[in-house]
Design a protein around this nucleic acid. Structure first.
Lengths: 351, 351
DNA sequence: CTGAAAGCGCTTACAG
DNA sequence: CTGAAAGCGCTTACAG
């Protein structure tokens, strides 16, 4: 089909619209950007012409000129697992809510999965492809802390999902891991469990797990008990495999335990598999609880007691805070509420 | 910290690097792009200076000039569910593999979730933000077919995940749904099931489901049986809820059945919940199979027999084909192999 | 309310 | 192998 008005090769430009409507190119630009300087009648004519030619503003040109991209970048850090096909469902859920939050605010989203070990090629901000960066993922906090520091030093605007720490170089949003951990442990104690093992790293390398652990310790202390170091088993990666191995390690210690508090749902799933392998019944003999409430938690056998993080709110908060940063408005680190979700895996009933 | 060589306000440009190294800006650009026209010695000097100033090529400028963006866009279509928080895990998995495939090929990826009902604002290509578009998602094929046609007419390069159809306006990559459906039905027949219900739309509105249904019909015919229309129940959306409702509808028909072939795993999960609600035992009384092999399939109770689609290969194929299109190389629609994964849910054992 | 003009930071013929 | 220059398609002071 040929155009009735002007014959144009390739994509039309604002000059084409200008010719077609008999105004200047500046006016076309203003009209399409919604400038109040253009009369309504002119704007309508211009819009009609733009529609007719299927004209769209070239973002590369407008971004170059106006020096912002209307785009955010999401960097998802993965454990460098051999099997690269599965991302922690919790982060997938975060990714979904961040994508939606961006769209609602008129921003596009670039995504990138990064191996923590790789060279951090978060060039999106440096190359002006994105106005700011959202960091997301598990991984050794201390290992990428200096990278965040570098980002901040370069003036890159970024927010991070993770533990809110006193000495951090950036803005972070996280859920109340401490309170979540405390809620889980309190619940398990209420079920009658007395020897609760914790599966997950409890060091400043993994501050979110550490906070969950601290909450667990706090709950025990509140109940007049003391946390036993031998009942904590590292599981740095938040994977099923790490959970499986952590439980095997726990069993090797030959200590009695009647509950498992896994630092994440994936770890809990692995632990449950290991328990089943040893013929230990969940929840009758050993109660189990996780953290995250990933979609499959309710479908497990038995359904998993866990802590729900509101990923929708989390995504929105991350995006909103980053947009504040971009607009140079003041922002603060924030702690989001969590909710204990009780399911059958914690219905402890020793005989 | 202040720069030792030249004092610069804001981000450095290629002119800054040129001044610093005593060459022209053109040479800086060539050197950084790896042009063979630059001597190795000069290139090294320029690279060193660029590193020192932390210079990065402005993508908006280079994209504008060179007329391509090095970016692909992924449009994920969602069922307009009220609860907007969950995306079908299968597509999440595809999203992961597409992201990785893009990264490996040096492309960035923009993502966007789209409601099928919404105005299709796939402006990424028109606005030059992306060189091409990947379409992904369930939804009424006929409802967005003309939109794809429009995309193609505008010269937008795009590939779609979905059924490979004779009359389609675009390039699509899909798995062999027909063979997958046949494999499931054959397996259920081998388990001794004789009255296999199909849960899922079987019309050209949902061509992937339709192909799975056709495979099921073919398997029955091969066994000398005929598909019974009353044993097929629509479940247009691929959601747990749709599966639940489909099974309730099936039960209302008061027809005997001994197996459920759900057009997707999510539908199977909903159906299993409904079966449990009626006290019907899976797999003893009714065998169940799904399609997709989403991560939670193996954790269900009982673990779900299903059809694995190789999402890694699928993502790579989509990206590679789109890149071919962008380079104006010939491409073809492709059918990817599937694999039956047998788990306990199909261990039919009537008493 | 509108237009002429400068310029965002590159890439790439063109000329040497 | 290198440089001077044009130009990608916009936005936005500046002048009216």
């Amino acid at each position: 089909m040929s155009c009735s008005a002007v014959s144009i090769k390739g994509k039309p430009t604002s000059f084409d619209i200008a010719h077609l409507t008999g105004v200047s190119q500046s006016t076309v630009s203003r009209a399409l950007r919604g400038s109040p300087l253009v009369s309504e009648e002119t704007r309508q004519r211009i819009k009609a012409a733009a529609d007719q030619l299927n004209y769209k503003v070239d973002k590369n040109a407008s971004n170059l000129r106006s020096q912002h991209s209307g785009t955010l970048a999401l960097l998802l850090f993965e454990d460098p697992t051999a099997d690269d096909s599965h991302i922690n469902p919790f982060f997938l859920s975060m990714l979904g809510s961040i994508t939606r939050a961006c769209a609602l605010r008129g921003y596009d989203l670039l995504i990138s999965f990064q191996q923590l070990s790789d060279d951090w090629h978060a060039d999106y901000a440096d190359t002006k492809k994105a106005d700011g960066i959202i960091l997301l993922g598990y991984g050794d906090y201390l290992a990428y802390r200096d990278k965040m520091q570098k980002l901040a030093a370069q003036g890159t605007r970024s927010v991070r999902w993770g533990a809110v720490l006193p000495d951090q170089p950036d803005i972070s949003i996280g859920c109340d891991n401490l309170q979540g951990g405390q809620a889980v442990a309190t619940h398990l104690l209420e079920q009658g469990c007395r020897r609760i093992a914790f599966l997950g790293d409890a060091s400043s390398h993994y501050p979110e797990f550490f906070d969950r652990y601290r909450g667990y310790v706090a709950a025990l202390e509140e109940a007049g008990m003391e946390a036993e170091a031998a009942l904590q088993v590292d599981a740095a990666e938040s994977t099923e495999q790490a959970g499986y191995e952590a439980l095997e390690k726990l069993l090797e210690r030959k200590l009695p335990f009647d509950a498992i508090f896994a630092a994440s749902d994936l770890i809990a799933i692995g632990a449950m598999r290991a328990l089943a392998g040893h013929g230990i019944k969940v929840p009758e003999q050993v109660a189990v609880a996780g953290f995250d409430d990933i979609p499959m938690a309710r479908f497990l056998n038995p359904p998993l007691t866990t802590v729900l993080q509101d990923t929708k709110l989390a995504g929105e908060t991350l995006v909103d805070n980053l947009l504040c940063l971009i607009r140079r408005e003041p922002v603060q680190t924030q702690l989001l509420p969590v909710k204990l979700v009780v399911r059958r895996s914690s219905q402890f009933s020793p005989t």
